[in-house]
């Protein structure tokens, strides 16, 4: 469904992405791991042209884009197929939770207001925040704000959702709720790329785990293989540092909390 070829990005002299190739099939949940500074976020933002890459190709279904010569129209068309969830939520501060979700439906996708409201309420219900519809972002906790952010992205029914460290800005006790919502989307068959540091989550939910380091994809594999039998020395070192032991016999905190 989505193929990326030789994606490169430089900041001044520093080569952040040295040619990334990646293929994502429909329904795949890809977890993107790597130490900070490895270019994960840059890559994700580059896919959506939020910080455009320097060169490479993006092939999304039948749309082929050469990054260097992408027009505003190409980018718009590509973004229509994408949802984006930000690390800092980036909710519209001047709009309520419900309006945050409606905005893209009504203004971006020109869906009639009444219908959009229904879709938006449905989306908020799914993330368990229907009763917070009239709250402004400043009145929500981080975990709630991020769930609204996910509802906002999912309500547009994009073909792929890109999640940029969705739980990194949250207090530990709020992470579980958000991961639960993402897992729910995965179970529904949504295609997603998740940049994350939640190893247990990656292992449990992802179909494929990709390890990036210093601007390159170092290793990619199924979660079990990836975590239990890492091949490259860089990945081994990375996993040992984040204490792979706790990953191996993880007990999925977020499933515990979903009971209530």
């Amino acid at each position: 469904m989505l193929t990326v070829k030789n994606f490169k990005k430089k900041y001044h002299q520093h080569e952040v992405l040295k040619g990334i190739d990646m293929t994502i099939e429909k329904g795949d949940v890809v977890a993107l791991l790597g130490p900070s500074g490895s270019g994960k976020t840059t890559f994700l933002r580059g896919l959506a042209f939020l910080t455009p890459g320097d060169s490479g190709n993006i092939i999304f279904d039948d749309q082929k884009i050469d990054i260097q010569s992408a027009t505003a129209n190409d980018i718009k068309q590509l973004r229509q197929k994408m949802g984006f969830v930000f690390q800092n939520f980036n909710l519209f501060a001047n709009k309520t939770a419900l309006q945050n979700v409606e905005e893209g439906l009504v203004i971006g996708h020109k869906i009639p207001k009444a219908e959009a409201k229904q879709i938006a309420q449905e989306a908020l219900k799914k993330v368990g925040l229907l009763e917070f519809s009239d709250h402004f972002p400043s009145q929500l906790s981080g975990g709630q704000a991020q769930r609204v952010g996910i509802a906002r992205a999912a309500a547009l029914n994009p073909e792929i959702i890109l999640l940029d460290e969705p739980t990194s800005a949250l207090d530990p006790e709020l992470v579980a709720d958000v991961l639960q919502v993402i897992k729910q989307l995965a179970d529904e068959g949504k295609t997603m790329i998740v940049v994350t540091h939640e190893m247990a989550f990656a292992r449990d939910v992802a179909d494929k785990v990709v390890f990036m380091d210093r601007g390159l994809v170092v290793e990619q594999n199924e979660p079990a293989e990836f975590f239990d039998h890492p091949k490259s020395p860089r990945l081994k070192e990375f996993l040992s540092r984040i204490s792979a032991a706790s990953v191996a016999n993880n007990s999925f905190e977020y499933e515990k909390s979903s009971v209530n």
């Binding site: 959506a48 939020l50 973004r79 229509q80 994408m82 949802g83 984006f84 930000f86 800092n88 980036n90 909710l91 519209f92 501060a93 905005e103 893209g104 203004i107 971006g108 996708h109 952010g149 906002r152 992205a153 547009l156």
Partner: peptide, 11 residues
């Protein structure tokens, strides 16, 4: 970031 979020929402 809100501008980016708006762009991604199709605005």
């Amino acid at each position: 970031g809100q501008r980016e979020a708006a762009l991604m929402a199709g605005l």
